[in-house]
């Protein structure tokens, strides 16, 4: 969907003529009674126009927090400590909430993880989309309705459903409606947080395909957040692997899957059984994802890493570049190792 060269430029960290979204050194912490949760720690990446970036990681690795940070939809106890979020070259981190509201939804929108619950059960679905629309675009009601009909068409929903209530929708239909709502103002970037996790495989397949088609049709950029490597492999051009609040590997999907540098990425790609191809022995990673209040020193993956050496335990790992991707690791694995 996007050319390889575009990917390579985006890798350079925002030097390309215009990534739609560039994130530089973003750090976000939650302060809780138990201590400071370092949810997002020095994350940098950029997404070009029409590109799809997949963020993978386990629960608690900070991927959902990162998604919320990009929209600045954070709870009170969260704080962006440093970094920039450049939307078309403009930093939105210092923007006050009133200004942010203009950008949210019209420029950068989100499909939430619990899409089933992000529709209000007491209002008709169409009304909710119109409401989201009218915050940003002033238009006559007929105009808005026409737009909703277009959106329903786009996500393959029957327009007769517009004036129905959420409980009359099936799970897959609700998910489509939520996607339609995110697309309402034709944003430049759509963030989809686990968009198909609660759905059955066949419906998941339909929705992922539709999202891909919509992206191609509207030329917008997407960020998929998921724990499922297989889903990310199918839908994104670039993939970022997160572990314990940090981005540990980033690059073109093909390169990351063909030749992972970071041992964590390698473990993730081989921890998944597959229905096709050879039946391979699954890699068992010891231990559990770390506590984010007191993460391990040095490389945060070192307590679970089979290749850990002394520098891993004490010092922040260096960036290793190979082909179309990089990783933060002292002991890179794979071809070049």
């Amino acid at each position: 969907m996007s050319e390889r060269s575009g990917d390579a430029e985006a890798l350079g960290g925002g030097r390309s003529p215009g990534p739609v979204l560039a994130v530089e050194g973003l750090t976000m912490h939650y302060s809780t009674r138990a201590g400071v949760v370092r949810a997002v720690d020095g994350v940098s990446f950029s997404v070009g126009k029409g590109q799809a970036l997949g963020l993978v990681g386990e629960s608690g690795c900070g991927k959902s927090s990162l998604a919320l940070t990009l929209l600045k939809l954070l709870p009170e106890n969260a704080q962006i400590l440093s970094g920039r979020i450049l939307l078309d070259g403009m930093d939105i981190v210092p923007l006050p909430e009133e200004r942010m509201r203009e950008y949210r939804w019209s420029r950068i929108a989100m499909v939430f993880q619990a899409a089933m619950n992000s529709l209000n059960p007491v209002y008709r679905v169409g009304e909710q989309i119109i409401e989201a629309l009218e915050v940003h675009v002033e238009s006559a009601r007929e105009e808005s309705l026409r737009r909703v009909r277009e959106l329903y068409d786009l996500v393959n929903l029957d327009p007769s459903l517009i004036m129905r209530y959420p409980h009359e929708y099936s799970g897959g239909m609700k998910q489509r409606a939520v996607i339609a709502m995110a697309l309402a103002c034709e944003p430049d970037v759509v963030i989809a947080d686990e968009p198909t996790t609660a759905l059955d495989v066949i419906v998941q397949d339909h929705i992922l395909r539709e999202m891909k088609n919509v992206r191609a049709e509207l030329g917008m950029s997407m960020i998929y957040v998921s724990h499922d490597m297989a889903v990310i492999a199918e839908v994104s051009d670039m993939v970022g692997v997160m572990y314990a609040g940090r981005l540990v590997e980033l690059g073109s999907t093909v390169d990351v899957f063909r030749d992972p540098i970071h041992p964590y990425t390698r473990a993730l790609t081989s921890a998944f059984p597959s229905v096709t191809g050879e039946k391979h022995e699954l890699t068992v990673l010891p231990g559990e994802p770390p506590n984010m209040i007191d993460p391990p020193s040095g490389c945060r993956f070192h307590p679970r890493c089979p290749y850990a050496t002394d520098p891993c335990r004490s010092e922040t790992p260096p960036i290793v570049r190979r082909g179309g991707h990089w990783a933060a690791c002292w002991n890179p694995t794979g071809e070049g190792a």
């Binding site: 495989v201 998941q204 992922l208 499922d228 297989a230 492999a233 199918e234």
Partner: peptide
């Protein structure tokens, strides 16, 4: 159908 809907962890 069920089998063909399972995502494949291989971007190629």
């Amino acid at each position: 159908a069920l089998l063909s809907a399972v995502p494949v962890p291989d971007p190629t």
